[in-house]
Amino acid sequence: MLDKSTRQTSSYNPELKIWSGASEPSSYSNDLTIAANHFLLKAANHFLSVGLIHRNIRMRIVSESGQALGPNERGEIHCHLGQHWGGYFGNALARSEVQDSDGWIRTGDLGYFDDDNYLYIVGRKSDFLRFAMEMYYPREIEEVIAQMPEVSEVCVFGIWNEIDGDAAAASVAAKAGCQLTANQVLDFVAENISEDYKQLHAGVQIVPNLAKNLNGKVNRQAVKEEFLKATGQI
Rank of each mutant, 00 (worst) to 15 (best):
H80A: 07
K17A: 00
F39R: 13
A35C: 11
Y137A: 07
E15A: 04
A35R: 13
W85D: 13
W104D: 08
N56W: 12
I77Y: 01
L110R: 09
L119M: 10
K125F: 06
F39Q: 11
D127V: 05
E97F: 05
E15K: 11
N56M: 15
Y112M: 09
L41D: 12
A94T: 00
F113W: 04
G123N: 05
G108V: 08
G82H: 02
E73G: 01
Q99S: 03
A146K: 15
I159T: 07
I61K: 04
F89L: 15
V151Y: 00
E24P: 00
H38N: 15
P25T: 07
I145S: 01
G123K: 10
L81A: 10
H38F: 13
G21S: 09
I18L: 12
N91E: 11
E134I: 08
D115C: 02
W160Q: 14
P14D: 00
I145L: 03
L41M: 14
N13M: 11
E150A: 15
I61S: 01
Q83D: 09
E140T: 08
Q99E: 15
R58T: 04
G51Y: 01
E150C: 05
S29A: 12
N72Q: 09
I57D: 06
F157S: 04
P138W: 09
H84T: 13
N72Y: 08
A43H: 14
I141F: 03
S23Q: 10
S26N: 11
E153I: 03
R95W: 02
N13K: 11
F89E: 14
I61L: 02
S49N: 02
G90E: 08
E64I: 10
I61T: 02
P14S: 05
L41N: 14
L93T: 10
I77C: 02
I121R: 11
M133T: 10
W160E: 15
D109K: 14
I159G: 03
H46V: 13
H80V: 01
P138L: 07
